[in-house]
Amino acid sequence: MSRPERDGAAGPTPARALRGMMRRDLLLLSRHPGAWLNPLAFFALVITLFPIGISPSASLLSDLAPGLLWVAALLATLLSLDGLFRDDAEDGSLEQLLLSPQPLPLLILGRVAIHWASTGLPLALMAPLLGVMLSLPAESYLLLMVALALGSATLGLIGAIGAALTIGVARGGIILPLLVLPLYVPVLIFGSGALQAAIGGGNAAPHLAVLGALLALALMLAPWATAAALRISLNG
């Protein structure tokens, strides 16, 4: 990633900035465990509500489980997204981020990666536990974890655009779902589709492939869109 800068003496290296950025985000997560624990608790809570609201019948729940797990994971991700840039915008860190000579999309990618590792990945690891509660067949747990891990990365990347666009909105937490949820539909379809296919005895690989393709597309485009959105939100 190192490229010759015009100003040879300064020699800023994007890799160093990326490492510093990710280290700081990890430190902050360790100082504020709520930032990553709350979405997990929310995920578990929502899943608990469904059987109470619908019916404790195991056969009914196992039919609904793929959709329920995915919708709950989607909402939990969304919940954690609002703070992705907001704190930084308030304390001036975001301003410094935009003033850095490093490529902004790269730094954003680092932040989203940490966000995924602290939200999407734990959600994926926790999902089998909730799968048990929803009487999901045990064979599908591995697939559930893989699909959630893949899908939640895409959700984080797309959500970052929404989070960046709503920094300037006073109660952005309300408008963010409106911007982002329609864009989450493909991930929801193929994520729960993978699970349904596996339960029905079909082949889940095509669904995973599409989830992977969606992730690749999001990786290519979302950091740039987020960078543009951040600049717009901060400086008109």
Binding site: I161, L165, T166, G168, V169, A170, G172, I175, L178, L179, P182, L183, A225, A228, A229, I232, S233, N235, G236
Partner: peptide, 25 residues
């Protein structure tokens, strides 16, 4: 979403650009 974002950002300079980015996404 586009209408809400524009509405929420109001007359601010950023509203137009933010809405444009959202529409493109």
């Amino acid at each position: 979403g586009v209408l809400a974002l524009r509405g929420a950002l109001g007359g601010r300079q950023s509203a137009a650009r933010a809405a444009s980015v959202l529409t493109l996404v």
